[in-house]
């Protein structure tokens, strides 16, 4: 049995008095795509946002239980959050390139980690844009402001930016929800390729997308993890009635 990248035990999360995650237990395996599905407001986003502690930015957020990354509790006092976030990258629902040039969007991420060598930066900009399947479209306009790109290109730039710092895990929080079908297909293709070298967790509202891209799937409902299994099992033979109802579109 492979060692899980993340082992989450008894995770509860709150925004103020609102109880949004209830006793979540889950193992995330390396080099696989784990999809999290469920209706809006069921806690999927809160869940993945607690894996890189980006939820710390929300002042009312509080959690209980353990999130272990390679057997280390990421909420322990001595954890370097900056290093954690470098290793556990994140792509957000709405593309959020920095208001800088395409080149600087990626160069910034390297400079943050103390890389100043211009040749190294140039090489990483090119390689990460290639990995994110964006290089051919922007190689002649690297100095252009990133905000002039289309939504789909912006999202791929955000993926390139994440890849540039060489994370081990990438969290995708509904990465395609604001994109058109063609851009969506490109991102899905990308996720498929990235699986070879990264551990991916993706939150999605799109059931077909979950079925297409993931190896494991978890179904969330009202803050609880109802079922977690291999994706084909979840989609063909769900154990829980509620999972089946949701997948077949009877509610949600």
């Amino acid at each position: 049995m492979v060692n899980p990248t993340f082992r989450i035990t008894g995770l509860d999360a709150f925004y103020g008095n609102k109880h949004v995650l209830k006793n979540i237990n889950i193992d995330i395996l390396p080099n696989a795509v784990t999809a999290l599905i469920g209706p809006s407001g069921c806690g999927k986003s809160t869940f993945i946002r607690s894996l890189n502690r980006i939820n710390d930015l929300i002042l009312t957020f509080r959690r209980e239980g353990k999130v272990c990354y390679h057997n280390q509790d990421i909420y322990a006092k001595d954890v370097d959050v900056v290093e954690l976030r470098r290793r556990v990258g994140m792509v957000f629902q709405k593309p959020n390139p920095f208001p800088k040039s395409i080149y600087d969007n990626i160069a910034y991420c390297l400079k943050v980690h103390g890389i100043k060598d211009k040749d190294k930066i140039d090489a990483t900009v090119e390689s990460s844009l290639k990995k994110a399947a964006l290089w051919d479209e922007v190689k002649n306009s690297l100095r252009q402001n990133a905000l002039t790109l289309s939504g789909g290109q912006q999202q791929r730039l955000c993926i390139a930016r994440t890849l540039a710092v060489e994370p081990e895990v990438i969290l995708f929080d509904e990465p395609c929800s604001s994109l058109d079908p063609i851009s969506t297909a490109k991102i899905e293709e990308l996720i498929h390729q990235l699986k070879q070298s990264y551990t991916l967790i993706i939150v999605t509202h799109n059931m077909q997308q979950a079925a297409r891209v993931s190896d494991f799937a978890g179904f969330f409902l009202l803050g609880e993890l109802i079922e977690f299994d291999k994706t084909d099992k979840i989609f063909t033979a769900p154990k829980d009635k509620r999972t089946e109802d949701y997948i077949t579109g009877r509610f949600g």
Binding site: R85, M90, R161, A164
Partner: peptide, 9 residues
């Protein structure tokens, strides 16, 4: 934007 910055460390 801040989240993006924090997410790359």
């Amino acid at each position: 934007l801040r989240e993006g910055a924090y997410a790359v460390g």
